[in-house]
Structure formats: structure tokens, C-alpha cells
Amino acid sequence: MSKAWKWLLISMLCFSWQAQPTIYKTELKVIPYLGGEPLSLKSVQANQSLHLTTFKLYISNVLLFKKFDKELAPIAAPQLLDLSEKNILEYEDENMHLDYPDSLELILGVDSQTISNQMFFLKGDLDPIKGMYWTWHTGYVHLKMEGQYKQKKFELHLGGYQGPYSSVQSLHFAMDKNKHRYELRLHLDALFQQFPDDPFIMSPGRESARLMQLLAENAELYSE
């Protein structure tokens, strides 16, 4: 092969490589925080006023949008963040393979639409063996926290999707067009500062909805 042909071939390869659009995979991590630190069952045990034995939270309907609410990604399967197994939920599968989306939506908990979706119901992280399935008319527990706080035992099973005390929380965040790595930080400080008088919540109700709302209000999308 002559030198000219070689150069031509190399040039074509370079051109085709440059012509490929760069599609970054959006990475999303969901991390609960307390006192400015990522929450884990071990770290909390060092805090004398709080001894957390269970923390389980559902994240569902994670959607990425681009350009005037045009949906780009399929819905990811609901995931359960169980601190006894992992401290962070990570989304980096094909559902997040998008080119700089404009906004992110997700649900804290599991809504009735997800439950009626046969692709997800009773499967994967929605398998009732995870201990989060509640009853047929209230669905799943969205957030389960148990332990001791200020030397008092507590069991918060927050859930229910039916009115008037639906505790499903939808979150919507604008995304930075120059970033593709994100952390959803769920700050629990307000929830513990406004802790319920009755520390045993086992069914849908006003307190369940209030606490889930507090969690949603203190969620922050952080980008690197």
C-alpha cells in the first residue's frame, strides 16, 4: 500500500471517529444523608441519640426528559434502597443512556400505576419477600425506618397511595446541560427534627403523608 493510501485511510478513520456523536451515560446515585454525612446503619449507631436498625426506601418511575418534556428514557424498574445491603442506589443501565437530558423526575415510594404494571408488580425489588408489600389497597410501604431515637423505640412504616393521605412523593429537578453525574441527596435531618409524637406509624394517614413530604422537600439534586 502506498504512503498516500495509508494517509487517506487514517484520515477517514479520524473523520468517522470525530463524526460519532458523543453520548454520555447519565449516572444517578441516590444517597440518604443525616448531619451532612451519607447515612449508613453503622455510622448512625455511633450517634448516641439515634440507633437505626432498618432503613428501606423505594425509588420508582425514574424518568429523564429532554426538550419540552419529551420523554427520552424508558421507566427504570423500581429499586429498593436497603441500608442493610447497600448505602447507595445507582442508576447507570441503559435507561440512563441519554445525551444530556434537561430534567429528572422520580417518585419516592411506589405509586398505583407502578403496582398495576405487570412488568414490575411482585417482581425484582417489588417481590413481597423484601418485606415492603403492605395490603392490596395501600400497596407498598414507601419508607421503612426502625430503631431507637432519643432512647425511645420507633417504627415508621410510611406508605399508602390513596387519598386523602397519599404519601407518594413526586420529585422534579432541572439538570445541568454540562453535567452527567448526579447525586440525589435525601436529607433526613428535618424528619428527625420534626419527629412524630407517636413513633409507631403502621398505616397510611396524616403523619405518614407529612413525613414523606418532609423527605421530599429536603431532597437535593447535586451534580459533579
Binding site: 413481597p128 419477600i129 408489600y133
Partner: peptide
């Protein structure tokens, strides 16, 4: 509260993941 509240079919008609039954008014 229904019978199913403590006896879910998906846990072989018991509850799972908490030690004691939960009843009306969040009682344990």
C-alpha cells in the same frame, strides 16, 4: 384493617419483616 393486613398471600398468609402484628390505630 383487613385479615390480609396481617395475613398477606405473598408471605404465605402471614406478615413478614416485623416481629409482632400491627393492628388498628397503629397498635402493636
Amino acid at each position: 384493617v383487613s385479615c390480609e393486613s396481617c395475613h398477606s398471600p405473598y408471605s404465605s398468609f402471614t406478615h413478614i419483616d416485623h416481629a409482632l402484628s400491627h393492628g388498628i390505630d397503629n397498635q402493636i
